[in-house]
Structure formats: structure tokens, C-alpha cells
Amino acid sequence: MARAGLTAERVTIAGAELADEVGLDQMTMSQVAWRLGVKDASLYTHVRSLEDLRGRIALLAADEKTIRIAEATAGQSGKDALVAFANAWREYARTHPGRYMATQTPIQIDPELAARAPGPRRAVELTYGMLRGYGLAEPDLTDAVRLLRSTFHGFVALEAAGGFAHQRSPQHSWVRALDALHTLLDHWPPSREGDSA
């Protein structure tokens, strides 16, 4: 591929594709440069470092994942919204493992880039909006968000690592986990007195 037309966006997409293939932690700037048909030094005109590239991939992935979740949950509420949200999350993690990992790993992101990226902010809005359908308010909303993120990420991470060796299909367990989450959210325990922080 010719050097002409190289942009930060093209470098980010090439890095994201590579991260999906080899893993975010295994991706190097040299591999990205080779993929684009340029010398390593050419990349640094568009991204400052490997950490900067990972941050850009995280923002790209957050946008992509949020769009999928928004499309899946449009017009849904209650359990239907929860299931659609969870399935879109899991499917993104399965089809784009490197990009997904970028959204789950602490990465230094350029504050100016992060401020312009709608994905992370929209993800929070979608999650809180879906949970408000269960009648939750703060501080329960934050606790419920953390529960969902822990459950979804824990499941897809274990699944990707081959951590479910039992003969029962992971899909059956996934469906039952979502049933259990819906029941819990529908019967959320009241906050303890003084539990506002």
C-alpha cells in the first residue's frame, strides 16, 4: 500500500484489524507499518506512540460497540432491552477480540481525542437508560452498571480463553445468567441507610 494518503484514521483501523488478529498486547508498531506498506517512522507522523495507537483503537471500538448496542436495543425495554444489550456486547467481543480488549484495558488516551469521541459517553447513556427502565436511581444505578459490566466481561473473557470446560453449552449458561440478571434487576434490594457515596 502506498504511503500517500496515510492518516491517523487509517493507522488506527490497521492497528484495530491487527489487534483482532494477534491480540492487543501482541500488536507492534512495526507490524502495523508492515501492514500499511510503510516504514515505522511514517506512522509517528500520525500517532505518537504504541500507547497512543491503543488509545485510538479503544475509542474506535467504543464507538463501534456502542452503535451495535444502540441498534440492538432500539425500541426495547425491560428484559428485552437487557438481552439485546448483552447479546450485542458479547457478539462484539467475539468478532473483534483485540478491539474489545482495548475498551476493557486501562489505556492512556489523549484527553482532546477522548473529549471528541462519542462512544464512551454514549455507552454510559445507553447503559444507564436501560437500567432506568428497571426503576433504578443512584447509587443503585452505578452498582447495577458495575454488576452488568463485571458479568458480561467476565463471561466473554472466560469464554474466549476456553474457560468453560463443562459439557453444558456456554450459550445455555449465558441465557440463564441473563434470566438471573433480569430477576435481580427487577427485584433490586433497597439501599442501606447512609449508602449514598
Rank of each mutant, 00 (worst) to 15 (best):
L113W: 04
H166S: 11
P118G: 13
N87P: 00
G55T: 10
Q108V: 10
S169D: 07
E64R: 12
H166Q: 12
T73P: 00
A70C: 08
A157C: 02
A115W: 08
F152T: 05
A16E: 03
G135N: 07
G162A: 05
P189G: 11
L136A: 08
G135Y: 04
G78L: 02
L53M: 04
A93C: 09
K65W: 06
V83P: 15
V32L: 01
V47T: 03
L18S: 08
H187A: 15
L6Y: 04
L178Y: 04
D25Q: 12
R168G: 00
T151N: 09
D40T: 08
G15K: 13
T142C: 01
Y100R: 14
A197T: 09
G55S: 04
T12P: 00
A160G: 10
A160M: 06
Q104M: 15
S173L: 10
E21L: 07
T127D: 04
T151M: 12
L59R: 01
A33P: 00
L136M: 06
A74E: 15
L141R: 12
Q108P: 00
H187W: 00
A93L: 06
P111Q: 11
A62M: 09
W89N: 14
F164V: 03
A74D: 15
L185C: 08
D20H: 05
H153N: 13
I109T: 15
D179V: 02
Q76S: 14
H96M: 10
E91I: 05
L6V: 05
E17M: 03
G119N: 07
H166N: 10
G98P: 08
V124N: 03
A74T: 11
L178A: 04
Q108F: 05
A2V: 03
E159C: 06
M27P: 05
S49D: 03
Q26Y: 00
I67Q: 14
A70R: 14
M101D: 13
E51F: 00
E51S: 13
H96L: 09
R3Q: 06
D80M: 13
T12N: 06
A160V: 01
A177C: 09
A74C: 06
K79E: 15
F155Y: 15
Q31W: 00
S42L: 02
S191W: 02
G194Y: 02
T151H: 12
E64K: 08
D52S: 06
P170L: 02
M130V: 07
Y44A: 01
A19C: 05
F85M: 11
M27W: 02
T7P: 02
H166W: 08
A137V: 13
E71Q: 15
G119H: 05
D63Q: 11
A123E: 02
R3F: 01
H153R: 12
L6T: 08
Q26V: 01
T127K: 11
A115H: 14
Y92A: 12
K79V: 10
V11H: 12
R3K: 15
R132I: 03
D110V: 07
A144V: 02
A19M: 04
E193K: 15
M130W: 01
